[in-house]
Write a protein that binds this DNA or RNA. Structure first.
Lengths: 125, 125
DNA sequence: TTATTATATGAATATCTGTTCATATGTTTA
DNA sequence: TAAACATATGAACAGATATTCATATAATAA
């Protein structure tokens, strides 16, 4: 059983050999999500990669709230909050209900708080 | 007990009233992480917000691997991988050991796979 | 109806980010 | 020592992103 394997000409970088065993390569190919899943997953996490959106999610973890309230609490412009809520809405992290002129937003599910908590756990080490 | 509260002049947007109860506001202030924590948390999740980095993490979830192997597996340039590994290293998501010319990278802890799995769970709905 | 209020949204802009290219660093081999 | 190789890194560039501004939409009140 060969531990190294010569790489063909078409390869993108300068490496002549690969070090990993073939069965590892096969295993990697097996667990690697499909292209679309990867993109979706990255987009999902990207949402949490912005302080403003994280703030919004924390706020909504306590109570449903209208756009204006969120803007006031976070001391930011209504437009900025509205834009971010749209992103959160598109990613199905928040839901909303209209009541007259006011739109109340809330977290789409409890899953989100778990992910926030898990991230917080990791950075607190 | 008042359900609405007038907002002062210094406020950043046009809203005249806030809808949430004062105790909710206080509760929000209580759970909201400190500024630095928020930034750290956003930076942490930002890592997972890129397909290339997610691919690298999935690859490393199967086996430690050298830079060159990762580049070959993902069909990307060595430099691009190296840059991303630096980001992952800075965020302590991967560790590495040197063996001669080769540097082997591996996941820093099992926590990471949990977070990936949780994200994957969410987008599969 | 018009005026007012809450929210949404398109355009513009400044900043950030990922990849590539060229090159430097560090290690091994000849 | 010099040559070869694996990795790291700075600069440049293209593409993405968050906020602001101006304005549109939608609902209510006068």
């Amino acid at each position: 059983m060969a531990e190294e394997k010569v790489i063909g000409d078409g390869d993108i970088d300068q490496c002549d050999f690969i070090c990993v065993h073939e069965n590892v390569v096969n295993q990697v190919i097996k667990v690697m999500p499909k292209e679309q899943q990867l993109l979706d997953l990255a987009d999902f996490f990207k949402i949490f990669g912005d302080p403003t959106r994280i703030r919004i999610l924390y706020v909504l973890s306590q109570s449903e709230m209208c756009v204006c309230d969120i803007a006031n609490l976070l001391q930011m412009g209504q437009s900025a909050i509205s834009h971010q809520l749209r992103v959160l809405k598109q990613m199905r992290l928040v839901k909303f209900r209209r009541e007259g002129k006011t739109v109340f937003y809330s977290l789409a599910d409890g899953h989100i708080e778990t992910i926030l908590a898990q991230g917080m756990e990791h950075i607190s080490e």
